[in-house]
């Protein structure tokens, strides 16, 4: 949420920076941002014009907008709010819709975007999560998904018990990609089966009651590809699988694996190229076996 901004990309370089060019280029990038001042308010489009510089990304565009705080027509406007942190596609913060498609803003290079559409770059908040403000959305549900499937290794505690289980290189190579999931929410945004759940605090409702009600609402919705994949990650771990049944119970509960419609957008948009559909199919298999076993064991 802290937004540091550089208005000029020479910043930080030494003396030679003084010589940088006034007449470099006069190209202008037109940016259209779908803004919303607060939850429950009407959204509106706002246009910005940014002087072109080489090697920009969408983050640097938003930084310029914040620094100038002026719309294309010259009006003073509040800076566009957006989420970001690492700027190297590893923290999962800056997910937004760039030209209609979900992706990380930090790796959305302006030169590439202009190749596709030189007229304009369009920025919108994710549509599957409640808008907090402008491009900032509330992705609590993503993390709630991890709670639902108990995405952790159920260790006794953090005191020394020697090394972990031995794991073959093959199993490590299988697990590692799943473990790079940064909870960015791209898979959920692109999923046609994942629909927005927005719970509004009622008049006089306590924060705790509201939180509980929101969680209950989340728990009825589709848990999502990322959480299914994490469940499979931990069900494959020698210690993690000790609560495999609990994860499968969650995955076969309401909003579980069955909600997947096999559109496979998740794997297509995942910035980390995580084999999400493989995880989903494996979860399907595990659920099949588990459900049948349950039927006959009971």
């Amino acid at each position: 949420m802290i937004q540091a901004v550089e208005t000029n990309h020479d910043a930080g370089d030494v003396a030679t920076a003084a010589g940088h060019g006034a007449g470099a280029t006069s190209r202008t990038i037109h940016v259209r941002v779908l803004r919303q001042d607060a939850p429950g308010q009407e959204s509106y489009w706002e246009r910005h014009a940014i002087p072109y510089e080489p090697n920009m990304n969408v983050i640097s565009i938003l930084q310029r907008i914040a620094a100038t705080a002026r719309a294309e027509d010259g009006r003073s406007v509040a800076p566009v709010a957006w989420d970001c942190n690492c700027l190297e596609e590893v923290c999962g913060s800056c997910t937004m819709l760039v030209n209609g498609r979900t992706r990380m803003a930090c790796t959305a290079l302006v030169d590439r975007l202009l190749e596709d559409n030189s007229e304009e770059i369009e920025l919108r908040p994710m549509s599957k999560f409640p808008v907090v403000r402008d491009l900032v959305v509330d992705r609590r549900r993503v993390f709630r998904g991890l709670e639902r499937v108990e995405a952790w290794v159920p260790v006794d505690g953090s005191y020394d018990h020697g090394p972990g289980p031995r794991i073959s290189p093959e199993d490590q190579e299988d697990a590692y990609p799943l473990s790079t999931c940064m909870s960015c929410g791209c898979c959920l945004e692109a999923c046609p089966q994942y629909t927005k759940i927005e719970v509004v605090q009622r008049e006089g409702e306590s924060a705790e009651a509201f939180d509980a009600r929101r969680k209950a609402a989340f728990d009825r919705g589709f848990v999502g590809a990322h959480a299914i994949s994490q469940a499979m990650l931990f069900n494959a771990h020698p210690t993690g699988r000790m609560i495999a049944d609990e994860r499968l119970a969650a995955l076969t509960g309401e909003g579980g694996i069955q909600m997947c419609g096999n559109a496979q957008n998740c794997v297509a948009v995942c910035p980390k190229h995580i084999p999400l559909t493989r995880s989903i199919a494996r979860a399907g298999r595990a659920a099949t076996v588990w459900a049948i076993k349950k039927l006959f064991d009971r």
């Binding site: 260790v155 020697g162 090394p163 972990g164 794991i167 290189p169 490590q172 473990s179 210690t239």
Partner: peptide, 22 residues
């Protein structure tokens, strides 16, 4: 050493040798 062991137990996918050690 204790910290690496702990992180290993917590499921960090450390790269492995062919025999399965870190």
């Amino acid at each position: 050493p204790r910290i690496i062991d702990l992180m290993d137990r917590l499921g960090v996918p450390f790269n492995r040798t062919p025999e399965g050690f870190r």
